[in-house]
Design a protein around this nucleic acid. Structure first.
Lengths: 208, 208
DNA sequence: CAGGATCGGTAACGAACGTTACCACTTAAG
DNA sequence: CTTAAGTGGTAACGTTCGTTACCGATCCTG
């Protein structure tokens, strides 16, 4: 049709990636047909095969691109606040926003689905995403521990607890399509609740 | 072949369900072929169509059966311990064991994958599984709150935090096939750490 | 023992899919 | 203006898959 001028192949490529991501994330790899992608992106199959070689090439391009997007959005070195509570709150909100973004919901779904078919893709997704976030938080906690602000045996483990609480059932519900992503208001409430419990939890031990 | 006597149709049915579950959970719905199931279960396609009608019927039977399994394994009314710490520890270990069982890992994968194709199945899976667990824990917490043992604004929300911490990154890693399920020793350590933080977190507020 | 009905296996059918051959059209060079 | 090159659309090919028609074997009934 006349959706895109034929003179801009890069625009074509982007449109294909966009449309393919939508369909892949919605339907899964096996259930997604090249025809369905073309129907959404316009143009013809020949376009896909010229640009990406085959179905698997297109899929890999999508996952890598979006994992990179999530990675660059995860620069928390800069959000270290005045005190630990502020840092945790900002980090939690940031994390929640990323986890709940349609893009990462889609990547998450596809990672779970195709874990067997594309183990390398899944590994790099985890390491660049949740794994990296946890490690970065663990470093922050390590610093707080040395300053005596918290008590913790294993900061890596405790950091995992924190990101687990952030994901909560909310993430699961959104991933399962049982509810829409939360609005800012709800995010703030949930993060505040998590930070409150977490801070009390790691600060002092009243017994034992 | 001679794997099952032809006189026991119920044995046949069970064998089919078992084999189909393995392939479905491993490959996903769309990528699983009837032939692949037969190859693993023995017999012939006719068997599947006589017993379950079609591919979708077989799939639904599997998910329902395994969701039921998880449901019946979730009777926590009986594991209320002497004090809150004991109850939470037992509940946490129970929950972790269920979440990490190969069966529920498979169901979880399929639920995430096929959320769009089978919304009703996914909904009942969530309500019978994570949703139910959270609600039951919320009731326990509500009791503790009335007895003054903990402080919490919204027990349902806080219960969500707890199950989130239990899932942790461990669950994600297992679901993604990045590591095997934890052994008993590791489960106990993780749950103890979670309970420690959670109890301190909801018990007293040292500031504010 | 005979007859009928039911179950299970084989093979085939029709549809859908990934991929590619082929051709029309546009574009740039001479 | 002619021609060579490359891009994009259409149609077709071979394969795979869900489903079913057909037929032999098995088991229950009289």
């Amino acid at each position: 049709m006349l959706a895109a001028k034929s003179g801009r192949p890069s625009g074509r490529r982007e449109a294909l990636l966009q449309a393919a991501a939508e369909v892949f994330f919605e339907q899964g790899y096996a259930a997604t047909s090249i025809d369905a992608i073309i129907e959404r992106a316009g143009g013809s199959k020949r376009n896909i095969y010229n640009e990406f070689g085959n179905k698997e090439g297109l899929f890999s391009a999508i996952v890598n691109q979006n994992a990179d997007k999530a990675l660059t959005a995860l620069a928390i070195e800069e959000i270290e606040g005045r005190d630990l509570r502020e840092t945790l709150t900002a980090f939690g909100q940031h994390l929640m926003a990323i986890y709940m973004s349609p893009t990462l919901i889609g990547v998450y779904r596809i990672a779970v689905t195709e874990a067997n078919r594309f183990p390398d893709l899944v590994k790099s997704f985890y390491e660049q995403g949740p794994g990296r976030a946890t490690s970065q938080l663990a470093e922050v906690l390590e610093g707080a521990k040395k300053r005596g602000e918290i008590r913790a045996d294993d900061c890596q483990r405790v950091a995992g607890h924190f990101v687990g609480m952030i994901r909560d059932n909310l993430h699961l519900q959104v991933v399962l399509g049982l509810r829409p992503p939360p609005l800012d208001e709800e995010v703030k409430e949930a993060v505040a609740s998590v930070v409150e419990i977490f801070l009390n939890g790691v600060r002092g031990r009243t017994d034992k």
